[in-house]
Every structure is written in C-alpha cells, then in structure tokens.
Design a protein around this nucleic acid. Structure first.
Lengths: 342, 342
DNA sequence: TTGTAAGCGTTATCAA
DNA sequence: TTGATAACGCTTACAA
C-alpha cells in the first residue's frame, strides 16, 4: 500500500485549474471569487478531501482563531463547568479551545503556556494570579493576551474576571461568627501557588481578628484537593484534643469528603459539628445534609471570560478587572454551635 | 512602544554567530554539536527568550508529539478522571495533550477531529464507536492513528481500549433479577450516537428476556446527562400509575439526581425503591445511601490508552482490542423489591 | 476577478 | 562538526 500524502492547496489548484492564490481566497474570502470558479474549486476540495494545513496557515497569516486554557486539573467539577461554558461561547464565535492542565505545578504551567503560545494560540485563559513575572514578560513579549479567571485583583498585572476570594470567604465567615461559632477548623487547599486558597484562608483569619479572637487557634490543615483527602483531614481535626464547632472547607469537594467521614464516624452534621463548602457545585446538593456553601457563577464566568478574551485578541476595549457576584447558599450543613463541648 | 516581534531561529543564529542549521541541531540533536558551540547557542536562546515556532516545525518535520482527544463533554467527572490520567501518562512520555469537546454532537466531533488533525496531532483519542465511516476514512487517508476508549468492540474498524458495556450492564442486571426485581425502570443517556448508552440499554432488555420477562415493560426514559435531568426522570417514572421496584441509571450522575429527588419526595431508598448507577465515580460514595454501581477503572483506562496511542503513533505493535475488567460495587442503594406495591 | 511570487520559521540533505 | 540551501503549505501584496 503506497503511503498516502494529504492533498495540498497546490493539488486542489491543479485539479481545479486555477492558481493557489485563488484556492486560498475561496477559503478565506469567498466573496472575492467568481461564483463559477468558486464552484470548481469547492468541487476539487471535496473530491480530494482536502483540509488546510494549520501549521502553514499560522506561519503565513499569524492568526489561528485558537484560544488556549490552562487549568490546574481536569479532574475537578469546579473548573470543568466553567471551562465547558468557556468552550461553548468560543465555539459559537468561531474559535477553537485547546485545553491543557498543569496539575497545580507552576513549572508545568509555564511549559504549557509556552507550548500553547508556540502552537499559535491567539490568546490564553489562566487560573489565578500566582505565577512568575518572567512568564508574564514572555506573554507580553509575544504579544499574546492572557486573561485570568477564578480571581479578582485590580492590582495584578494581568486582567482578570472572577470574584474576590477574600470577600467571598469573609462574608461566609461573618455569617458563621454570627451564629456563635468561636472554635474554628479549616481544611484548605494547598496555599502555595494558589492565591484563591490563600485569600480564602486569610479571610478566615481576618474574620477571627475582627471578632477579637486569636487566629492562631484555627485548626488548619492544608491538603490536596479530593474527597479522600477531605475525609482524612476531617478525621485529623476531629480527633485532636479540643475539636472545633465548625469545619470550614476550602471547596465543596473537601467538604463532601469531610461529610462522608463524619457520617461514617457517627458524627451528626450540623448537630455535633458544622461543615461548610465553597463553590456550590452540584455535589453540594447531593450530599446530606446539603452543603452550606458559597455560590460561584462558574458558567457565567466561563462565558464572559470567552467574550473578554476574544475582545482582547481583537484589540477591542474590554473591562480589565471584572468582578462577578457571589452569594452565600445557606443549606443544612451549618448550624449553631453545640453548647456543651463535644 | 514598538511592536515586539518574537525572536526566531535566525535571530538566535545571528546572536550566537552560527548558522540556523546549528541552532536547529542544538534543539533537536544536541549531541551532534560541539559543547562550546552548544553553550554559545544556549546562551543566545535564553538571552533572547526564544521559543520555537510550532507551525514552522510541523511543516518542516511532520512530527508534533501532540495527541488530540475529543470527549463528549468536559463537564463530566467520568471523562475528567480518565482524561487526566491519559494526560499524565502522555506528559511523562514527552507528549502534549490537546483536548476538545464535542457536546455529544457528531457534527462537532467531526469538526474537532479535522481541527486537531490539521493542527498536526500525531494521534487521536476518541470516545465510543458511533461515528461516520467517512471520518474514519479521513483519518486513514491522513495516516493519523485513532484509538477509541470507553468501549470494547472487536468488530469495530478502530482499535479500542475499554470495557464491554453490554457485559458490564448485564452482570448488574443479573444481580438485580436475582434479588427478585421484576418491575424495572431505566434512566438512560440519549442512545443516539452513543454506543455505550445503547449497549447498556440492550443489556437491560436482554436480561429481561433471558428471565422470561417482557422487555417492553421497562419504564424507559432517555435524557441528557445531568443531576437535574436525573431528578426529573425519576419523578416522571415514579409518578406513573405502576411504578417499578428499581430504577437502573445509565451512570452515577443520573443516579445521584434520582436519589436526590427520592429524598425530597420522602421516598426511602432502597426500602421503597432501589436505585443503581454506573461508573463508580467519587460521587457514588458521597450520596446516601451509597450507590450500588458498576466500577469502571477510569484511571487505568486513561493510562493504558496513552501508552497504546503512543505505540500506534510510533508504528509499534499494540493490542488492537484491549478489554479492561469491570466489577459490581455493591453498596446500599440496591435492596430486595418491596413486597407490597408502592 | 485572477495570477505571480515573496515570504513565514523550521528541518533536512548535502557538501565542506 | 558545521554551513548553505531547498523544501514544507499557505497567505498576501502587487500586477495584470
């Protein structure tokens, strides 16, 4: 069997009896071509099963209609929902999304940024602000616009669309303190290279201080994201000598893990201890008791992120720091603190 | 501010005082270059912040070390976990994964296949076998190897790695019938363009027949994937005149939705009615009662898929139809049928 | 409306 | 071990 070679513009041109320029025009600016010729060319294209070579196209035109996104992990409903919305909007506007994941590793993230840029991404979507200024220089040097999502920071170098993680967690914290909780546990995602997690942690600490409490009394565990890790952390906090009346979790997945563990230990939520989440993914409503959490408009964020990135790519004006509203979602996993010590 | 232009091989060559060929060699076959020259070149590269242009590279070398994957949706823990494992293994072997999603639409899937191929993907990962033979012709014509995952079918044109959806659901069905269930409800994903869903449905029907029951008595609802849609479907089945003693769900997410609805209606699972899922994602253990489901080794599948695709790309021998083991995960959402009619 | 031809940034072949 | 130089497939002035 002879090795097949994909047909090129030249093949199509030959078959249609026109120049390569004309074929190219049929593809890019069809209305600049006479109907008769266009028909001939299109015929040749389908006959040959021609698909343009992307690499060549990029080299010649410098425009790819491709947006890259680098997310910490694909294995997380939180990003999944927002990214799907991002992709849907991009697709509607004729752009293609290419996704890569960094496994929460800044080195890998840099690598992926370079990969995507060298592949001709017109623009990039990144998660959070924690990254080296070198890589931002790199993006500027290559004139590749990048938008940060899942965060809001008007002082950051990169534009962003998202919410203020500090404010969001603060409002939950205020609610918790109002209920009378004073002994607080916190299961957080790793805060290194993760500004979202760090701001959420800071919000809890600041809440304590404002209430005249000692923030060092927070039973804090930093752990990787996951249901299992949430369960382990819960167990650890609850087993210590003086357990808290509430365990705040950095996201819904950790909270679900904590809840699961509580159940298996026969600890009643929220009677014995309260648990809260963050994100309001569907999971939050599937567990019982349903999770009190912070609602984040992931779909909206994804959609608007797409619109903004496209504006950036096209050098149109855009809102540089767009903040989205979040709100508390009060459900059953949060109650008043138990009066007698557990 | 002058518009910056990304440095090219030529710039590096000039700066290092060598030819472009030498720079290229430093990048691709460093050991064919004298250490002294190599050092000079590397210095120039970092000084300029040079990154190779991918398009040009592809055009010149025809090799990209990129694998494309097209999944029905990113918004689904089922694919997320497998794809993350797929990506991890690819990354370990020096390949880059580019993911696109089809929104369960075969037209979009074709589009994405062409996009990925024209971008120079060396190989492709696809989900399930349902697609036009034209697009398979296209892949063959372009000599792009494609591997199907999440399915097993030794008669299909494309090689695959996965499990036999019919067998998997059949074994669950056998277990269910053994418990004494005779009145069966089924919430399935849409079966059009989805062989996995179709085989699972067929398995339920065949199970009925083998047990001497009439498969047309199955209360069947086909719906989109989602927690909400699962809840709606459950409600519909349960509200009909003669409700079943069990509702089999095509995957865990639908089952979680059904469970949630049951709880809100005050229906006790599994005392009043049983519910089963499929996939055994983490969610299955977070709901209560925990879901009886079919365990699918997603991570293992993703990892092996990566290894196989790389073999295919490199024209090494590989197992064309690899079947992975699945097994029942018996938990609490499945019980004996209630004796008196609900 | 169409054709000619000069790039675009690499790699690879062939000499040196 | 290095350097010229011809592809690779496409777009886009510029000419016709």
């Amino acid at each position: 069997m002879p090795k097949y070679l994909a047909p090129t513009l030249t093949d199509v041109a030959k078959k249609a009896g026109v120049s390569t320029a004309t074929v190219s025009r049929c593809l890019n600016t069809p209305d600049h071509v006479a109907k008769r010729t266009r028909d001939r060319v299109e015929e040749a294209i389908t006959a040959l099963g021609y698909t343009p070579n992307f690499g060549a196209r990029v080299m010649a035109s410098k425009r790819t209609y491709t947006i890259g996104a680098i997310i910490p992990t694909m294995e997380n409903a939180i990003f999944a929902r927002g990214i799907q919305a991002f992709q849907d909007e991009l697709h509607r506007q004729g752009y293609t999304l290419l996704v890569a994941s960094s496994s929460y590793d800044p080195k890998i993230e840099e690598e992926q940024i370079r990969t995507l840029v060298s592949r001709g991404a017109d623009g990039l979507l990144l998660i959070g602000h924690d990254r080296s200024s070198e890589i931002i220089d790199y993006l500027e040097a290559h004139d590749i616009p990048a938008l940060v999502a899942w965060a809001h920071d008007p002082n950051a170098r990169l534009p962003s669309i998202g919410f203020d993680n500090f404010r969001a967690m603060s409002s939950l914290m205020k609610y918790i303190l109002n209920l009378g909780h004073r002994e607080i546990g916190l299961i957080s995602a790793k805060t290194e290279f993760n500004d979202r997690a760090r701001y959420r942690l800071m919000a809890v600490q600041h809440g304590m201080i404002r209430a005249g409490l000692d923030p060092t009394t927070i039973r804090l565990i930093e752990t990787q994201y996951g249901i299992k890790t949430g369960a382990v952390a819960f167990n650890e906090i609850i087993s210590a000598p003086h357990p808290p009346t509430i365990i705040i979790c950095g996201n819904d997945v950790l909270a679900a893990g904590a809840l699961k563990k509580a159940k298996s230990l026969g600890i009643s939520i929220p009677d014995d201890i309260s648990i809260t989440g963050f994100d309001d993914i569907e999971l939050a409503q599937c567990v019982s008791p349903k999770l009190t959490t912070v609602h984040v408009p992931h779909r909206e964020m994804g959609k608007q992120a797409a619109k903004t990135v496209i504006k950036m790519v096209n050098k149109e004006v855009f809102e540089k720091y767009k903040e989205l509203d979040i709100h508390l979602k009060i459900r059953q996993s949060l109650g008043k603190p138990k009066t007698n010590i557990l």
